[in-house]
Amino acid sequence: MSSEFGVWLAAFFTIGIASFLYKDNPLYKFCESVFVGISAGYWAVALFWENLIAKMFDSLGISYFFGLWPEKGALQDIFSGVWNWNLLHILAGILGIMMLLRLFPKIGWIARWPLSVIVGSTAGLWMITYFQSNFLSQLQKTVVPLFDIGRINELSEIGAAMSEQGRAIPFDAYFAAYLGNLILIFGTLTGLVYFYFSKEHKGVFGKTAKVGIYFLMITFGASFGYTVMSRMSLLIGRLYFLFSTWLGFVN
């Protein structure tokens, strides 16, 4: 059994949070509140030191001016006649202050300006990125031959070599090579039909859309399966902690 205070504390909170599975109780409420409080505090401290201090005060040279940081910043460079792009951080600082003005109802409207900058720059940044990564690249790889001829040829060569050793290529490799592309194209088309709402889903169109739903359901099923796996993994991690690190039952 562990003799470390931190391990006992972690075990206490693990059991406290897990006690919710029995029913809601004061111990769970306490552990939950502590977790939320610590998380908020951690983020506040992390962002204060990594963002406000490092990006604003250190880079501008304010920390250096007060003797709190050894390196000079943008303001010192400017006074020495050297241009430093970090000077633009002043602009970011002003926008940050403007954002905080929403706390004062009378001048709260000023906060819309920095918000507009955020919305505009984010939209501009993501528009190109998503278009390239999630649209063009995906579309390009959907335009494929119905059968993966290259892979089929490759498999026949590998298969010949393997059969000499008395081994065989797994069935799923052949399945993917012969039917993989076909399913990809069929699934994409039927999925797109399902999301076409300008025509009523009736007749052949409706049936195609229904096939699209089945493809979507398979996707959601796979996603659900992965989620189950993820949650079980976290639980296994906690159980290992309790049985191994805390109680020392397992090595």
Partner: peptide, 25 residues
């Protein structure tokens, strides 16, 4: 993490990702 893996899989077949380790498995 396994929760995130399905979101990353589309990038594998396009060659954008060089391999995925999905969850504990």
């Amino acid at each position: 993490t396994a929760v995130q893996a399905p979101l990353a899989y589309p990038y594998l077949d396009t060659g954008q990702l060089t391999g995925i380790l999905g969850g504990m498995k």
